[in-house]
Design a protein around this nucleic acid. Sequence first.
DNA 1: CAAGCCACAGCATTTTATGCCGCGCCTACC
DNA 2: GGTAGGCGCGGCATAAAATGCTGTGGCTTG
Lengths: 173, 173
Amino acid sequence: MMPGLKLDRIDLKILAKLQQAGRITNVELADAVGLSPSPCLTRVKRLEQAGYITGYGAHINLRKLGEFLTIFTEVTLSEHRRGDFSRFESRIFKLDEIVECHLVSGGYDYLLKFVTRGVSHYQSIIEGMLESDYGIEKYFSYVVIKSPFIKHHFPIQNLFGQNLSGSAGASHD
Amino acid sequence: MMPGLKLDRIDLKILAKLQQAGRITNVELADAVGLSPSPCLTRVKRLEQAGYITGYGAHINLRKLGEFLTIFTEVTLSEHRRGDFSRFESRIFKLDEIVECHLVSGGYDYLLKFVTRGVSHYQSIIEGMLESDYGIEKYFSYVVIKSPFIKHHFPIQNLFGQNLSGSAGASHD
DNA sequence: CAAGCCACAGCATTTTATGCCGCGCCTACC
DNA sequence: GGTAGGCGCGGCATAAAATGCTGTGGCTTG
């Protein structure tokens, strides 16, 4: 089990702030959460170390880089033995155009998110997957016409129901 | 139409690097892309200004913050007039737990991504949406069992098919 | 009630950000 | 073909930030 690390109200404020302003300076962050820079930086380092913060990234406006096509694909595997899942997962992980993979309950097994240069690009990837042995029984594609919004930051605070007084123990990795 | 801004090989390297290391220092970034700090910072500012970079964020490990439930929901609207869509979009945008909204072609209208504290939390949100007049005809939920991977950074380079020699004009916002 | 521990603020040093300047290259106009 | 202008670069100087150290106050524990 991991260190566990007790998160107080300030830690959550730090996480919330960094989530929506990842490049904020430590000085500003410290001011925003009501600490001086030193202990603030210490907390950030600890949060990174403990795995609460897994990385930082810039949000790139894909549309300005050219025409891209986002597609959600439902996938059903032909076999459901132990190993079929992990084999499928590790293989599609190598495909750069598949940016998300979710195992879901419901009518199919996986929901995949593709970002491609267009339908023909997508088509060639899918064909490659079908020709090789990914174990796909059937699939269905939903082409994204537009994405009205994608929130890169959900409100951590709200998800705790305003209950930011106590501490939140951690667990499972 | 926007400035347009011509992106060269170096700009794309900057975008790629910032996408996967958003908190990198300008000195390190400059070194990574083969520039000195001054022109590198100038380029970053310009990319931000021109909207290629829309923001920065930390990636938070939700699982360590407690039990959260991710759910993908297919939604079909009961009416498809002009205005029904935008009204739906602007209303669900206000719901913190809905973190993504995609208009898709295929069997239904919208694919939504929820992040909730659990099924009952999800249930209460859905009920609220049905009671108020969101214009939902029917919906179907896919509960995420696990997410084998979510790539916060797709390879910009690859999506251009290695063709990073020339320049890429921009367009539509 | 006293001793130890923890987290904080303040300070000093190193590193980074950022504006300014001069140089070389590429272009366009003469 | 030569020259003037503009653009983008590297280097430098100054301001700001990161980061490690130290002392202090509050809280816990014996």
